[in-house]
Amino acid sequence: MDTLIKGADIVSMFCRININTRNNLPIRSSEMGLLIFINQSEEPPSSREAVEFFKVSKPMVAGMVRSLEKKDYLKRGDSPDTNRRFTLLLTDKGKKLVEETTGEYLKSMAIMREGLGVEDYDTLLTLLERANTLMLEEDKNHLSRTTKNR
């Protein structure tokens, strides 16, 4: 049990440190992630693609889209694909924010890569990917069990 508590403390501190380094953004960290995702996409993505990429709920992405639209960081574009109602596009204000803050937003990753070394940094990312997969699978299994018990 002690190792579980220690692990929870370590992960919790890691998350707090990363969140605190991003407090100077004019938007939430999750919203900044969405802007970066849109900016990095070859074609304007749909909300559904954002849901799939971030592994979050549709209402969560819809809330981010509404918030970013109100703040004039993104807009909805017409979709040539009939399966998508609209695409997500950065406004000039959104593009400027991404350009000005991406370096700061990714600064903690660069610090870790330099401090840990490339091999340990790659190992960290591999382990985090595995942990994310495990937790997402458990979440999906929990939701499935909850739905069956209704």
Rank of each mutant, 00 (worst) to 15 (best):
G7M: 11
R150A: 00
R113E: 12
T146A: 12
N83H: 13
R76L: 13
R113P: 03
L125G: 05
V61W: 03
T3K: 15
G117L: 09
S57N: 09
S57E: 12
L106Q: 14
P80H: 05
L35C: 07
V61I: 15
E129Y: 08
F14C: 03
S41L: 02
L35W: 00
L74V: 06
S57A: 09
D120E: 10
K75D: 00
N149E: 11
T133Q: 03
S47K: 11
K6H: 02
L125I: 07
A62D: 12
T147D: 07
A131M: 13
D9E: 04
T21G: 04
H142L: 14
S79Q: 05
S12D: 01
A8H: 04
P45H: 06
L90I: 09
E42K: 15
M112N: 06
D78G: 07
T146E: 13
L97I: 06
I5K: 11
I111M: 13
D122H: 02
K148D: 15
D122N: 12
E114K: 11
R85S: 09
T91S: 10
E119H: 10
L34I: 10
P26C: 10
A50D: 01
T82K: 13
S29M: 14
P45K: 05
V65K: 06
I19Y: 10
K55I: 14
K96N: 14
D78T: 07
E129S: 08
E138P: 02
N141L: 08
M112Y: 12
D2C: 01
R130L: 08
R48M: 00
D2I: 05
M64D: 04
K71E: 04
K107V: 01
P80S: 11
G33K: 13
S29F: 05
S46I: 00
Q40H: 13
A8K: 08
D122Q: 07
K58N: 08
N83Y: 12
E137I: 00
G117P: 03
T82G: 06
V61H: 10
I111R: 11
L35P: 02
I10E: 05
S47E: 10
L136E: 13
R76C: 03
I17G: 03
G103M: 09
I10M: 09
K95W: 06
L25M: 07
G103L: 09
K96Y: 06
L88E: 02
M135F: 09
N23P: 05
V51D: 01
S41R: 06
M64A: 08
D139C: 11
V65H: 01
L116V: 05
K55L: 10
F14N: 06
N20D: 15
T133F: 10
M135A: 09
D92Q: 13
L125C: 11
P26G: 08
K140M: 14
R66H: 14
I36G: 04
L74H: 04
K140Q: 14
L106R: 13
N18Q: 14
